[in-house]
Design a protein around this nucleic acid. Structure first.
Ligand SMILES: [Mn+2]
Ligand SMILES: [Mn+2]
Ligand SMILES: [Mn+2]
Ligand SMILES: [Mn+2]
Lengths: 222, 222
DNA sequence: TAATAAAGTTAGATAAGCCTAACTTAATTA
DNA sequence: TAATTAAGTTAGGCTTATCTAACTTTATTA
């Protein structure tokens, strides 16, 4: 339990670090540039913030070294992620938002400070395990179920798999997914792959589609 | 429809102005000091912001003159008030918050920018007309039903009235109100008034209580 | 290993919101 | 109406979060 209130910006830095480390299995450290590009700010800006986050004991960091979260930082970051995903679930389940409309609003809602609010929301939603994009929701203790998941691009030709989550959360990508009739759980068969330009020929509910590498890398399947 | 996004702080200035003008019938202008004290900042700070709000055509203001809202400013301020009161209603109706727990969280939620979110919330709540404190909720057009309401302190001895709203939204006041068994709608009879120290002797549901002027001035009755 | 490239840091600015202290204008009141 | 008080403004500073440009350190590669 950290007693101090984190700023909107500090919370976003911690959440980014969660995305770049905890959620990216087998990598526990990141560099300044990678963090900067994830946050859409310049490396110089990140550098200033690193000093502040280190001062507050939220990250481990030495000059010219790599960045990692401390246990306090990890918990705080997980709480932001938990809020983001619970709010997204709320918007879809209770307010009839579609999965391509929730991310932007959740970016704002994830910064509301109220323990009671988030726990009530969790209860109202009946303690959901996954958000509308198939991503696992951390529990109140900051624990998350990390699934070993592959992208569709890594699947062999001739193999069938099921969509379990999407990587890109942008509305343009999600609307593209909608257009193919895909939802979380859908079965996808890779009929063949083009070696030359890396296109994939898919069969979804007896319909055939051709998609790009970029598209296939944003679908997680199992 | 204003196309620009207002900052958190700008929204709070506009909401304050709504409270100090529109909601205070028969007064359409305020001074720098009054606004400063309502916002808990110093007059010098307000002075800086006035220039910015005037620049954005949200207020009418001349050096050494009084401050009033333009139509654009009034609409923007009303939207913040609408959001505040809808969120408070949501917290009580859907998340089992008590009326003394909602204000602080609503202070944060009122600044979430999403037209769809607030309209869905309104629908989910079945277009409520009043918030948990008995205050009217502006509609989507920024229109509000202003009730001519008296405080309990203005009521004559011997007269019965009904609680329709509370003025103070702090949890300490609301918990005090709870202690007397009062809720919106309760009947209150003023048995007598003390001239010397301005205490009021009340009868609520056959129980007798003595309350201060300060307390009575924070209850609106009809 | 020396040169080059990539990654990371520092210095100096800017904008938003806030402050205190000093000043000016307007309002009140003797 | 002149003196006093209240209200409002200005100047100069601070903090947070951002930037650009220049520099330093580390990593890569010829
Ligand atoms: Mn999201
Ligand atoms: Mn987010
Ligand atoms: Mn309130
Ligand atoms: Mn507020």
């Amino acid at each position: 339990m950290q007693e101090f209130q984190l700023s909107f910006t500090e919370e976003n830095y911690l959440k980014s670090l969660i995305h770049l480390t905890v959620l990216t299995f087998a990598k526990l450290e990141v560099g300044t540039n990678e963090l900067a590009s994830n946050l859409n700010v310049k490396p110089a800006t990140v550098n200033d913030m690193l000093k502040k986050l280190k001062e507050k004991k939220l990250i481990n960091y030495e000059r010219y070294g790599k960045i990692s979260l401390t246990e306090t930082g990890r918990l705080a970051g997980m709480e932001v992620l938990r809020k983001h995903r619970l709010w997204e679930t709320f918007l879809v389940e209770k307010l009839d938002f579609t999965w391509d409309e929730v991310h932007e609003v959740a970016e704002q809602l994830e910064h509301i400070h109220s323990r009671k609010l988030i726990d009530s929301l969790d209860a109202l939603l009946d303690f959901p395990k996954f958000d509308p994009h198939g991503d696992p929701i951390p529990n109140a203790k900051g624990e998350i179920e990390i699934q070993l998941r592959k992208t569709l691009f890594e699947i062999e030709a001739g193999v069938r798999s099921n969509l379990i989550a999407v990587k890109d959360n942008s509305s343009s990508f999600l609307q593209y997914v909608n257009k193919l009739g895909l939802t979380i759980g859908s079965e996808i068969e890779i009929e063949s792959k083009e070696e030359y330009d890396e296109l994939l020929h898919l069969k979804i509910k007896d319909q055939q589609f051709t998609v790009s590498k970029k598209f296939a890398e944003n679908l997680f399947v199992i």
